[in-house]
Design a protein around this nucleic acid. Structure first.
Length: 406
DNA sequence: TCTGGGGTCCTAGGACCC
DNA sequence: TCTGGGGTCCTAGGACCC
C-alpha cells in the first residue's frame, strides 16, 4: 500500500478550458462572458458563470441567464493543441504524470525537493510556466492523496493554488457536500440525501455496511473509503484508452432510415480512421441511441476478430440498426453513436485505397504484392471492395455467425 | 436545466465450458 | 445420470466524469 507522508501530489486543472483558449486567441473576448457552443454549453468563462451559466447547460437557458454573453463555436483542433502544450509543461515538471482528460492531470512531485524545491514551490512554478508558455490560467491543488489534491483544486478555482496539509485533510473533506467526492453524481447524492446525508462528514459516520446497503457494493465501498480519505492510489501514467467512439445529435426532426444511414456512415468513417491512425483494432461494435422521449439504449455485437476496417464496422452497425428499426420508428431517434471497444489487439495493418477506375485484378495484385513486400509473407492481408452499393453486411454477419458455430 | 461529444467503470443475467 | 462448483465471455444498462 502506497502511503505518502507529505502532501506531494499535485492536481493541475485548466480553468474553463475551452473558453480560456478562446479568450487567449481573441483578446477582444477577455473580461467578457464567453460561452462555448450553442446547443449545449461546454465551458462557460468565469464571467459567464457569475450569471449562473454552467457547463452541460442548455444553450437557450444560458442565453436567458446571460444575454450579453458572446457565444463561440467550439474549435476542437485548437483545444487539442492547447492540451498538448499543457501536457508538455506537466511532463517537464514531474517524472510521473497521470492525465485525466485533455486539460487535467495528477503529478507526483515527491522526491523532487532537492532538484525542484517543495511541492508548493513546484506548484507555483507550474502555474507560472503554463501561463507563460501556453497562455492559460490553471489551478493546482496539492495534497497527500489524489482525492485531496483533486478536491483542493476544485475549491481553489479559478486561477488558484491550494495546499491541504496532512493534518487538516479530514476536516477539509468532511465540510464538503457529498457531490464533491469522486464518483458521486446526482443519482448517488440523491440516495444519500434521502437518508439525511448531505455532507462528507455525515457520510463518514456511517459504517461501510450501511453505505453499501444504500448505494450498492461498489459505490458504497468507494464513498466509505473516500469519506475517510482512504484513497491510496499511486499517480501513474494511464494505460491506453479502452474504446473509440463518435456520436451525433440529430435534433427532433424525424429522419428516414436512409438519412440515418448517411449519418452512421460518417460516424463509422470517423471512428475507424482514428483507430487506423492510432494503430488499434477492436472487436465489439456498440450502437448508442437516444430517442424522442430522451430514453437511451445501446446494442452491441462482438466480432470474432478485432478490426479497424470501415466496412466491417459499418456492416455490424447496419445489422444492429435493423434489429431496433421498430423502436426507432415508434419513438424517433434523436442521437446515434458508434463505439468500438474491446481493443484487445494491436492493428498493424495498413489500408490502401485504389481509385475505382483502377479497380482491376492486376491493380489489386500489384497492391497486394506491395503489401507482402512491406510486411512479409506472414502478414495477414485482407482486401475488400469499397464504394457505392457495397452491401457486405448480411454476408459478413452470416460469415461471423458461421465461424462462431465452428 | 429540456439536453453535445468524448470517454470510464460497475452490475447482472445468460450462454457456455470444464 | 440430470447436476456441483468454478470460471469466462457477451450483452445491456446505469452512473459518472470532463
Amino acid at each position: 500500500v502506497f502511503v505518502s507522508r507529505e502532501a506531494a501530489i499535485l492536481h493541475a486543472d485548466a480553468d474553463c478550458f475551452h473558453a480560456s483558449v478562446e479568450q487567449r486567441d481573441r483578446p477582444e473576448l477577455r473580461g467578457r462572458p464567453v460561452i462555448v457552443g450553442p446547443g449545449v454549453v461546454t465551458s462557460p468563462s468565469y464571467e459567464a458563470r457569475a450569471y449562473g451559466v454552467r457547463s452541460a447547460m442548455g444553450g437557450r437557458l444560458a442565453r436567458r441567464l446571460c444575454p450579453q454573453a458572446v457565444f463561440v463555436k467550439p474549435r476542437w483542433d485548437a483545444y487539442v493543441e492547447a492540451g498538448k502544450a499543457l501536457f508538455e509543461v506537466f511532463e517537464r515538471t514531474a517524472p510521473v504524470v497521470e492525465g485525466l482528460s485533455m486539460e487535467e492531470a495528477f503529478l507526483d512531485v515527491s522526491g523532487l525537493r532537492r532538484i525542484s524545491g517543495s511541492p508548493i514551490e513546484i506548484a507555483a512554478r507550474l502555474r507560472r510556466e503554463v501561463r507563460e508558455r501556453v497562455g492559460l490560467p490553471i489551478t493546482v491543488g496539492v495534497g497527500r492523496t489524489k482525492l485531496v489534491a483533486k478536491v483542493a483544486s476544485g475549491v481553489a478555482k479559478p486561477d488558484g493554488l491550494l495546499v491541504v496539509p496532512p493534518a487538516s485533510e479530514l476536516a477539509f473533506l468532511h465540510a464538503l457536500r457529498v457531490e464533491s467526492l469522486w464518483g458521486v453524481g446526482p443519482s448517488t447524492a440523491e440516495k444519500l440525501n434521502a437518508h439525511g446525508i448531505s455532507t462528507v462528514g455525515q457520510a463518514a459516520r456511517l459504517s461501510q455496511a450501511e453505505l453499501i446497503s444504500i448505494l450498492g457494493r461498489a459505490s458504497g465501498r468507494s464513498v466509505h473509503a473516500l469519506a475517510h480519505n482512504r484513497h491510496p492510489e499511486r499517480v501513474r501514467a494511464r494505460r491506453g484508452r479502452g474504446s473509440f467512439g463518435a456520436q451525433s445529435a440529430l435534433g427532433r426532426t424525424t429522419r428516414s432510415a436512409d438519412a440515418i444511414d448517411v449519418v452512421v456512415i460518417g460516424l463509422v468513417d470517423r471512428v475507424t480512421r482514428r483507430m487506423r491512425a492510432a494503430g488499434r483494432a477492436g472487436r465489439t461494435v456498440v450502437l448508442r441511441m437516444r430517442f424522442g422521449d430522451f430514453s437511451r439504449a445501446t446494442r452491441s455485437y462482438t466480432l470474432s476478430r478485432a478490426t479497424a476496417a470501415s466496412e466491417t464496422v459499418l456492416a455490424a452497425m447496419r445489422a444492429l440498426l435493423r434489429s431496433v428499426a421498430t423502436v426507432i420508428e415508434r419513438k424517433g431517434l434523436t442521437l446515434v453513436g458508434v463505439t468500438v471497444s474491446n481493443l484487445d489487439a494491436r492493428y498493424g495493418g495498413i489500408q490502401l485505397e485504389l481509385p475505382l477506375e483502377r479497380r482491376s485484378r492486376s491493380a489489386l495484385d500489384r497492391a497486394l504484392d506491395e503489401l507482402r513486400e512491406r510486411f512479409g509473407t506472414g502478414a495477414i492481408i485482407r482486401a475488400a471492395l469499397l464504394g457505392r452499393g457495397s452491401e457486405l453486411s448480411p454476408a459478413l454477419l452470416a460469415d461471423e455467425a458461421a465461424r462462431r458455430r465452428d
